[in-house]
Amino acid sequence: MNLFRLFGDLSHLASIIILLQKIRSTRSCRGISFKTQALYATVFITRYLDLFYDWVSLYNFTMKVFFIASSCYILYLMRYKYRPTHDPSIDTFRVEYLLGPSAVLALLFHYRFTVPEVFWSFSIFLEAVAILPQLFMLQRTGEAETITTHYLAALGAYRALYIPNWIYRYFTEDMVDPIAVTAGIVQTALYLDFFYVYFTKVLQGQKFELPA
C-alpha cells in the first residue's frame, strides 16, 4: 500500500458518499445515470468474486464489501425510492456497446483462463468505460448540479491517483499489471474533458455548463 493508492481509494470512497449526499439532500437522482450506476454494481460484483476464497487484508475486505453494498443501495434508491426523479429518456447510452466489447476483451486478455480471472478482466475493462453513459448524459443536458460534478471529480481523482500508484509499484515492487494499467489509462483519459470544465468553471465558483 502506498499513499497514491490509499488516497485513490479514499477518493473513491468520498465519491460514493458525495453521490449518496447528493441524492439525500436534493431528494432526487436527477442528473445521475442509472446505467452507469448499474455498470458499477456489475463491475464490483464480477471483480470481487474472490471475496469468498481469497483473503488479502481487513482493509481490502471492508472496501470490497462497502463498494458492492453501496452500489446496490444506490441502484435501490434510483430504482425504487427516488424512481420518479430519474428520467430514462435522457439516459440513452447503449450499454450493450460497453458490455459486449468488455466481454470479448476479457476472453482475449486475462492472466489465467479461469472463471474468476476472466470475470476479473471483464470488470477491469467494463470499469474503464462505465462512466460513459454518465458523461453522455452530461453532454446531452449540457449542465450539472455542482454536487454531481464533485462526485465525478472525486471518481476521476481516484482513477488518476492509481496511475502514480502503478509507477511507484513498478519501481519499488517490480510489479506490473498490464491489463489494469492499460484500462486504467483509458479510463482516466475519459475524464480529461470533464476535468477541464471542472477546473475552469466549477472550482472558480461558476455553474457547470457546457458550451452550446
Binding site: D9, H12, D50, V56, N60, R112, W120, N165, V176
Partner: peptide
C-alpha cells in the same frame, strides 16, 4: 493467484 499478478488493488 499463483504465478500471476495478485489482485490486491480495488
Amino acid at each position: 493467484g499463483s504465478g500471476t499478478v495478485p489482485h490486491d488493488e480495488l
